[in-house]
Simulated scan of single mutants.
Amino acid sequence: MPELPEVETTCRGIEPYLLDCTIDSLELRERRMRWPVEDSVLALEGQKITAVRRRAKYVLVESERGTLILHLGMSGSLRICPKETELRKHDHFIARLSGGNGMEMRLHDPRRFGAVLWHAAEDGDIHSHPLFNRLGPEPLEGDFTPAVLIDAARGRQTSIKQVIMNNHVVVGVGNIYACEALFRSGIRPTKKAGRVSQAKLTTLVGHIRDVLAEAIQQGGTTLRDFVNEEGKPGYFKQQLNVYGREGEPCHQCQSPIKRVVISNRSTFYCPKCQS
């Protein structure tokens, strides 16, 4: 599943093509997605795009009339391509852009776990939408402070990894980046959140930010031109310390990396460097 850095890179990739552009027309080629795609999204036709941004793992395409909400699901991608480009079987949603350049934005989603939704301006601020009204702060913004994590962890018997992956605490800390941030912080992912010291939690907030920011930065450097064959940046080529490295030596102490399952997710850690 695309994680926060992949979605952020997608937003940055499509923004130059969409911002201040008018949507000439939309085509709904498949309505059977995570939620049925409704005709209400057609309200975006004829609208000028005023902003393209991300909230959690959702792409928000804003106009005066409302906001188009896109989610990439498990295997989806957004790409900008010339209208002459041959359609693929799983190109489910197409936005044709104005400006005489004949470009289109296409949502490609083989597994159909993605989403195409509409939030009308008359229904209030986008943050009032049911998908967003209970979300925690963005990890790269000022609202995500050590105090937030300390308060969320206080007295909790669940693992610290479950806490930082809880979207009500902080959004977008997916499995890969949770494992990596916990390694940098020297915290074992299975440790009960309520038993992690405030000093360690403060350190963890900083490392969550660092890991995500580095992934976004590295993704940006590999994204030469967003108009490409696949239309997605893929996972980043950063050096992973623990994720996916079961049995391999720790980069710091040479101990074999361990794997456990937490909430049905493979979790990787160094038994010596993390306690």
Rank of each mutant, 00 (worst) to 15 (best):
P130H: 03
N133I: 06
F144S: 02
E122G: 14
A120I: 00
Q157N: 14
N166A: 11
L135S: 10
R156P: 06
A153P: 01
P139I: 00
H127Q: 15
E180K: 02
E141N: 12
V173S: 00
K161M: 10
R154W: 09
T158Q: 15
F132G: 04
D123A: 14
L149Y: 02
A178Y: 03
A178F: 01
N167Y: 09
M165W: 01
L149I: 09
H129D: 08
I164E: 05
V169H: 00
V170P: 03
I126H: 12
V148H: 08
G155H: 06
N175R: 06
R156K: 15
E138H: 11
G172T: 02
F144Y: 06
N133C: 11
P139W: 01
E138Y: 08
P146H: 05
P130A: 15
Q162A: 14
I176A: 13
H168G: 07
P130I: 08
A178H: 01
T158N: 14
L131Q: 09
V169D: 01
C179R: 07
A120M: 06
P137C: 11
P146R: 03
A178N: 08
A178V: 06
R154H: 14
S128W: 04
V169N: 02
V171T: 07
P137W: 03
V169S: 01
N166T: 02
G124M: 14
Q157L: 13
